[in-house]
Amino acid sequence: MSRALRWGLASLVAVALLVGALVVLPFSSWLPGGTVADVPTAEVVNGSAFNRLFPAPEAGQELVFTQEKRGFSEARLKQGSAALALLAISDTATAPEARSKFAGSGSAIEGWPLVEQGGQASALLVADRFQVKVIGQGNGLDPDQRHALLEAFDLKGLAALLPAKTARERKALPAGQQQPVRLPVGTRQTLEEPAA
């Protein structure tokens, strides 16, 4: 094979690859995988940061961590072998629609809006970003017990996870790359509510 032919073939292959990549690029969202809601993982608080904020179990009870992922941590509150409740903290950066239900909230714990979901679940939105949830299991818990559990979380510590993180995000991402709904912080609502 002559030298020119080899170069020609090589450049042909290179051009074909380039064109192929450009054609496939718009379809990348069809490919399986990626994080939930396609949020870059760096923008989501890791679940390990939530673990120490869970309430300490009372005497006779046991707190068993069951799942820890990026933006999520869940534990099961047990008494003996029976599960009493699921306790979870999640970062709503991957599920912005979860925040909308708090708009109609009538009550609050430590100033953060509180919402009931069905007969066994109570949810709290901290710093307009982190959702804390208690779901009664087995025989169930009454609302007061669930609210007491929500209060026992380190809510101040959870709210404090926010500012350092967003400062870093703002630096790291140029304005053009940010999606409009991803960063809920700094809205007027957030700033007013803790004070109320």
Binding site: N51, F65, T66, K69, S73
Partner: peptide, 18 residues
Amino acid sequence: VNGLPGDSFGDFSASLAD
């Protein structure tokens, strides 16, 4: 499925037992 739940080895083995 579960990640590596908890902050310590004790948490992790409790999670496995559960």
